[in-house]
Design a protein around this nucleic acid. Structure first.
Lengths: 399, 399
DNA sequence: CGTAGTCGCTTAAACGTTTAAGATTGTCTT
DNA sequence: AAGACAATCTTAAACGTTTAAGCGACTACG
């Protein structure tokens, strides 16, 4: 009876009347074979309109078992005798077989992909050094779980669209969000869609969703305490414009400590600026242009970039950083250790934080499949940054 | 005759004896329905072990046509009467149907994914501002073609492994490479595997592969010409350590112009340093510690970061940048416009370059499917950077 | 009036996996 | 000696698309 000729390597080998493995070698051109045989195989492939593509079926043919058995061996999902196991593994290696992820994903209805909305280039094109490190660690972390990151762009005017598109087309299993804000539309939408995600950063307190964040309030508190410990009582702060979550948290840390230390808050010593050297330069000028009794002796900055601007101004004005006036940054940009003087800064433990964040998300994903009854655990993790004291704030202050 | 009960929305609706659309509303919980009906539908779904997931079959059921017709309508791949077309589109909208990309990809044996090996964090953790902008533009560009970027990490000791893994598991259709080097193992492997890719940067001249690059030699030539035009003849250069392609290209541009202008090359005025502020500071110190007749009047730097270090030193040494000594950077970091003085730099046209690069790669991919006979076009594009003159080199020089 | 062609749709196979259910063999128990 | 059972393997369905091939019903043409 004429069996329907499948488009498999075996069909080609039969047609050319050679062993399956020979046909493979002839087609893959990796290993040289007799030219005549090669010709025969190529012709056979041509007739059958076959393009080399090793599937589980070819492995089965080579090992003399069904495709199910191959699958069981590869996934260890059913007992197989040592003998056949051996044959299957040999066939896999001889043919260089790798399972097709797309087919596997279709069957499992998952994608093993996690979406990450690329951060918008900041005003002035500044890149965020924290995010760069975060992405790097995040990619490495998901790969240990055999997931991959799909990076996509989000329209600043309508970030939600990109997320919906990826969800509806089943492109990703979940999301990692960064640069969250108070009433983040993305978080809101993902919550109503009940789609798995985790945020690097917090939002609205009334929403209950998994996140990992660095405690900015505590961080700036530590900075302020450090400055007080060094003898400063006239401490200014240069923060971001209003409306940023992280910005307000850091500002509150500053306020907390001043209050505890019974140092009155001076509104004119709280400046706000966008995150670039030039604006920071001007903010410092504004702070220091007061009569000398009205000037701060320490300036805590909300980022290292701002701190650089401040240091630039102080140097230009002949004020010695770390001696006359202390300056601190935040985020511990790699560059900061090499400034003159080296910049005191808060170090964020991204390297340990990113893997934790990924673990939570992937825990959610695997749980979702196995045990739909269990509600998703709302993991909310707040880690503490670490103060790195350097020369810019090292010297004790004396009135 | 008892038809095999498929796990479709229609099956659930029939079981609950409600219209398909009602069943959808009851299950999706988006639109409120009568509680009794909702209960009935939920029970029916429970019995049939059905989880809401709208497929092309549901659309067909709702529109009263076969799944093939739905596909034809959605892809415009066969003529369909206006009447049925209307019904299908209505059904799609009513059910919020989106095609499952994984299934489509399996059928088409493509992934619509492009792999991008994440750059290694540089020594000292410096990020490359050019790459950041490049990635951003690249992501946006592939999305206009309905592709996505899969970012993965590459082991510095064996970068090829990650590429092979992605190829063998059919994760991506092609690659975009950055940070190429002379004998790039990745390029070599991809060439022998005949896998589609394009590089942002060049390599070995003997290899013939598609790339897009910015002409660093021409760029540094422009910088040097600019300095000569401003009256300088004592021009130093601070470059990268040996072995970097881009570094040597830029160095050659400097050499070219000095040679043309009949200015003898002074080896002691060519310094090499890694890309950080601190080392650049020291390099500048070394250059300027010679007796004043042996000092350069202009320092061309191979990056903006190095230029910042140089400017830091000059300021610290009481030398006025842009007046006593000219300084130029390279790459036009967004920060550079805001330095004091603002830094002259070479601007790389990433915004136009990234889309071009993506076009070439995707051209290759689509061509591959339709017309395997045609050899891949070896597009090699070299674009010119643009000199942005600012205060750090603006003033004409007078001996 | 028969037949060829066109239009509009359906049927069914295919993409490459996973896995529930069934088949075959051999061993053990009574 | 025969049924029960375990071990090992195969069969076939399913995941959700795309698309070649087929099939009625009309229209047009000789």
């Amino acid at each position: 009876m004429p069996v329907k000729p499948l488009k498999t390597l075996k069909a080609v080998a039969d047609q050319a009347q050679v062993p399956l493995l020979t046909a493979y070698h002839a087609l893959s051109a990796d290993i040289p074979v007799d030219p005549a045989i090669r010709r025969a195989v190529l012709d056979a492939a041509d007739v059958l309109r076959y393009r080399l593509n090793i599937t589980i079926r070819d492995v089965g043919d080579q090992a003399g078992v069904s495709i199910a058995t191959v699958s069981y061996v590869l996934n260890n999902s059913a007992p197989v005798s040592d003998n056949t196991r051996r044959r299957v593994i040999d066939a896999v290696e001889a043919l260089g077989y790798r399972p097709n992820i797309t087919a596997r994903n279709l069957k499992a209805s998952e994608t093993r992909m996690i979406g990450y909305g690329w951060h918008n280039l900041q005003a002035g094109g500044q890149t965020n050094p924290i995010l760069d490190r975060f992405i790097f660690q995040m990619i490495a972390a998901v790969e240990t779980h055999h997931y991959h990151i799909l990076t996509f762009s989000q329209d600043p005017d309508n970030p939600v669209r990109a997320y919906e598109e990826l969800i509806y087309t089943n492109r990703v299993d979940g999301f990692i969000l960064s640069e969250t804000n108070q009433d983040d539309a993305r978080i809101k939408r993902l919550l109503t869609l009940k789609y798995p995600f985790i945020a690097f950063g917090r939002a609205n307190d009334t929403w209950n969703f998994p996140y990992v964040d660095v405690d900015g309030r505590r961080g700036m508190a530590l900075v302020t305490e450090h400055l007080i410990e060094r003898g400063h009582r006239r401490i200014a702060l240069i923060g971001w414009p209003e409306g940023s979550l992280a910005g307000e948290a850091r500002l509150n840390g500053y306020r907390d400590v001043l209050h505890t230390a019974d140092i009155p808050l001076r509104p004119d010593w709280i400046r706000r600026t966008i995150n670039d050297v030039h604006h920071a330069f001007e903010a410092a000028r504004a702070l220091m242009s007061a009569p000398s009794t009205e000037r701060p002796t320490a300036i805590a900055c909300v980022t290292d970039v701002i701190a650089i601007g401040v240091m630039n101004y102080l140097e230009a004005a002949g004020i010695q950083v770390g001696v006359d006036v202390a300056v601190t940054g935040y985020d511990d940009d790699p560059m900061s250790a090499f400034l003159h003087p080296a910049l005191t800064s808060m170090h964020q433990p991204i390297d340990t934080l990113a893997p934790q964040l990924v673990n939570v998300l992937i825990g959610q994903l695997t749980l979702r499949n196995s045990d739909a009854a269990k509600k998703r655990p709302k993991v909310q993790l707040l880690v503490e940054p670490e103060l790195i004291v350097r020369a810019s704030s090292a010297a004790p202050h004396h009135e």
